[in-house]
Amino acid sequence: MATKTARVETITGSSHMPDDTEAAAGSGEPGASPRRVRIPVASVRADAPQFQIAAKNPRRAEIVAGSGFLMAAVGFAGFGAAYWQNYSNFWLAITFSVGFGGLGYGMVIWGKYLMPRGPFSESRHSLAPTQAQREVFIEDFASRGKVAVERRGFLVKALGLASGILGVVLAFPFIRSLGPLPGKTLRQTAWRRGSYLVDITGRRIKTGDLEVGGFTTVFPPDDIGGAYSQTMLIRVDTPPASGYLTPPPQFAKQRATWAPQGYIAFSKVCTHAGCPVGLYQELTKKMLCPCHQSLFDVTDAAIPIFGPAPRPLPQLPLYIDDDGYFRAQDGYDEPVGPGYWERGND
């Protein structure tokens, strides 16, 4: 304890040292209160240039600043009138700006030309305490803590347990309950075997509805307008003799019958960031994503040929039923839309 007292004394003794500003001037009598410790102001002449205002002709500056305020008055009055008369946004905004502009102009002129132009300075001291001050603080903190906390290990553990449980429990209302788990929703869409292709009004699409070189956005009947089941149905061409558009070699077998009578359907959800790929360039037979300009080749299984999209658009297998309506042979055979961690290779 003795050492500690001694140290405190040292601190007390040195506590004047950071306050050395005025003391450096040598005028502060010991014992005077800090507020009274100041150097005489004799060194500053009353007519020092710093105290002069910048305007040589204050009257004139006053008129200029005042006219700014008058302009503000006119502007604000105009704003009131414009509001009352329900004028257009332009008049409301312009009167408002004239008001604030005038106010600002006047205030700045006032501050800049009618107040002491300086420059003045204030002194600055390092905020860092001395090493001794720091040590005392740490010593105090640690020794009190030793008494209060360290011997009460049980309390500390119990407190930790309670707050730990609180933290875990809070995670449920503030995180877990915010939304459902993804489950399978990212993997499958509303497209099923036999789903009709309907447009946004619910009308079933049949052969001959689209012109050659036309497209329309289709949905399954139970998810009209769905963000993930939106699909582009494109009539690319008049079909070859086989009746089906020929898929690229790597899909020759799998997708041989997916595009009957020159119609082909791709997911409208971009595999990059999920935007609707609604731009169909008819002559070049490419689909372009409006958000980040990924370009998909419709005649080549919608493989991205340009831009950031990493994967082709999934293709919806189509067939035409006996009544001439388009239907899905099955749902998409891979997740539509952008990638995510669990997606893997499928």
């Binding site: 001959g208 509805d209 689209l210 012109e211 070189g213 036309g214 497209f215 494109i234 360039q281 008819e282």
Partner: peptide
Amino acid sequence: TGPGNMPRFGPGT
């Protein structure tokens, strides 16, 4: 008519 690269929208769509 869908001029150039513009798709063609018939009465079916």
